[in-house]
Design a protein around this nucleic acid. Structure first.
Lengths: 123, 123
DNA sequence: TCACTTACTTTCAATTTGCAAGTGACTGTA
DNA sequence: TACAGTCACTTGCAAATTGAAAGTAAGTGA
């Protein structure tokens, strides 16, 4: 059976806890990286593949579908023949910025060797 | 082979991106829920089992070990004979509060039916 | 025609999950 | 002194997910 056939994230809540609920949408090793990449101006499949973590293509395709279904990402046709889509964050997706920011702040404080938030922003 | 035998989170980085690095520690459906529960004064294995998401006991034991190894959680003997441990957040673990807070803010805004942050704090 | 590109999909072995049952070390009750 | 109960796990195992690699569809450019 193909994955992610039906059900929105809202339909399969383990509880009504806000932490638990958002983790059902972005709680895995890859989803937030895709959001990060789109946030930093990568929009095509190719561009999204090229991030340093080397996301497998099947996982990338799957996460883009999920993100679209959850309403965090919107697809836009940027070329007819062959049809090619670019991926953009919706407002809902863009609003994950504070989440990513707090993750980066923590990482910078506790994981030596991580690229500093200031350096990312002033690039 | 038993899982999580060696290697600290720092040893298996996919990249130096701060988002990616923290996701290698807490990027899954359960870890942050355990952190949340300890944060809200659940300290024994029993208490941590009792959260509404019904975490399987093997996953709970595994996540507590990982969290301890990552230095987010500290174990404390609270009873000899039989030896029983309680789990507490270290400063490093407590510093995930802004992350949880931003997750909750997003959830409250976008996922209808999630318990409001204010209601959690004033309980 | 042939090589090349983009955007995926498929295949399949290996890993991870999660339910259920089991275990060890006790305690409290009859 | 049996025996039921509790707590903190561990083990077994089927099912689901992951991820590396190869395949495919629909083109372009030389």
């Amino acid at each position: 059976m193909p994955d992610d056939e039906n059900n929105a994230a809202e339909d399969c809540q383990r509880s009504r806890c806000p932490v638990s609920c958002i983790l059902e949408i972005v709680g895995d090793k890859w989803t937030l990286l895709v959001v990060r990449d789109i946030f930093f101006d990568n929009h095509t499949f190719k561009e999204l593949q090229s991030s340093p973590e080397k996301i497998p293509t099947n996982i990338l395709a799957n996460r883009l579908k999920r993100l679209e279904r959850s309403g965090l990402v919107r697809r836009e046709l940027y070329q007819e023949r062959p049809k090619r889509y670019a991926y953009y964050l919706t407002e809902k997706g863009l609003d994950l910025e504070p989440v990513m920011r707090s993750l980066m702040v923590w990482s910078n404080k506790y994981i030596p060797g991580t690229v500093k938030l200031e350096d990312i922003l002033k690039e």
